[in-house]
């Protein structure tokens, strides 16, 4: 077992219309972590995601899953897609059935599992995503947040090793964002999944993610832990991103108002700790 579950090497992809979306992208995704991919609109995040389970085949370069290059034959793709599950941004593009139960069962039935096993997995996935009470509801009567959960359950039912989510928090209200991220974090811990999310929501990154990649113009411009990445303020701003609000506040306090923090935390709890240290130092 290699430490990297997915590895992308010098990946290039050009769309049929000539758009060069990925330009020599290198990336190593560690097993059992939550990895965030940050990037402005049009940075190539979705194109990258479509490479992770073989929907797109790179124009050049290679994708490795568990250390082995991806096999693009029919059988190879089926195996890959069982291991790498993708949840798409718009659940309306993913939910094809008017019945929640049917939609969730789809992936498991396709794996040709015995009926008992499918039903068990459907129950588990619905339980985990908190949608058991929606079993008998028609899909079109659900709220956006509920549809999102159904979409996640429909992928979890395949029990993948890697869960890829394209903008899982887009379009959700603050409580919905918090619930979805907690749900993902719990699932990741319990099942030992590797989770990859793309997002614009910078504030959630230091709270839920272990590793961050920043993309711009089809390549990786920054990578590291949230703390490492968010200390590269200039580089972040150059690619149309920003610091988490808390980080920004502390930066201003430090640079303009003479608070001499030793480091710049980017979460509320981190900021609280830094403030307390600052206060205690002043007292003594």
């Amino acid at each position: 077992m290699t430490q990297n579950i997915l590895k992308l090497q010098d990946l290039h992809y050009t769309y049929p219309d000539g758009t060069h979306a990925l330009k020599g992208l290198d990336m190593e995704i560690k097993r059992g972590q939550v990895t965030a991919i940050l990037g402005g609109n049009g940075a190539g995040k979705s194109t990258l995601f479509h490479h992770l389970n073989g929907i797109l085949k790179p124009s050049s370069g290679q994708v490795f899953f568990e250390g082995k290059p991806v096999d693009y034959s029919r059988k190879g793709l089926i195996r890959l897609r069982q291991s790498v599950g993708v949840v798409f941004q718009d659940p309306d593009n993913q939910l094809f059935s008017a019945s929640v139960y049917q939609d969730v069962s789809f992936g498991a039935v396709n794996m040709k599992l015995p009926e008992d096993e499918v039903r068990r997995r459907v129950d588990v996935a619905m339980e985990r995503t908190g949608i058991s009470h929606l079993k008998n509801k028609p899909t079109h009567c659900l709220s956006f947040g509920q549809k999102k959960r159904v979409a996640i359950a429909g992928v979890l039912v395949m029990e993948p090793e890697v869960l890829v989510l394209d903008e899982p928090t887009a379009g959700l209200d603050p409580k919905g964002i918090c619930e979805i991220m907690k749900l993902l974090k719990e699932t990741q811990k319990e099942l030992g999944l590797s989770i990859i999310i793309s997002t614009h929501d910078i504030d959630i990154v230091p709270l839920y993610c272990d590793q961050v990649f920043v993309m711009d113009e089809g390549g990786i411009v920054l990578e590291g832990t949230p703390q490492e990445v968010f200390s590269e303020k200039k580089a972040l701003r150059r690619v149309n991103l920003r610091l988490p609000r808390i980080g920004h506040l502390l930066e201003i306090l430090k640079e303009k108002d003479g608070f001499n923090f030793k480091e710049l935390p980017v979460t509320i709890s981190g900021a609280r700790k830094a403030m307390k240290i600052w206060r205690d130092e002043r007292k003594s």
Binding site: R81, Y101, Q102, D103, F106, V109, V122
Partner: peptide
Amino acid sequence: ARGYDGDINVFE
């Protein structure tokens, strides 16, 4: 991405 092979197979 969820293993569609030409038939929509689901359980009710």
